[in-house]
Amino acid sequence: MATHHDHDLPVGEIPKPQTKAIWKTFIILVVVTAIEFAFAFAMDAGTARNAIFIILTIVKAFYIVAEFMHLKHETKALIWCIILPMALVAWLMVALISEGSYYFESITNYFN
């Protein structure tokens, strides 16, 4: 490996770390998780609480993907390549959950 030393950066030229944005994102993630727990104990289960959970989850997902995975700073085309298929998955989820409710309705109301 000694032959490679001419490619190395001179010692002492390592710039200072720029970690402010990273820790900011970390604090946001921790706070949002704490809020989720607060809702889990302070609020009764129901559609409203579930909606709050899903919205807060999407907020967390946004910060992880945009900041940690750096997607926010990629080209627009790449961003859409990732987001559009996932939007379709979310749609499938909504469709199949209502399908599950319908199935439950059917077996409880029509076959008893």
Binding site: L96, I97, S98, E99, G100, S101
Partner: peptide, 8 residues
């Protein structure tokens, strides 16, 4: 989600 909604 589907299994949960098809259970009581």
């Amino acid at each position: 989600g589907l299994s949960r909604h098809k259970h009581l």
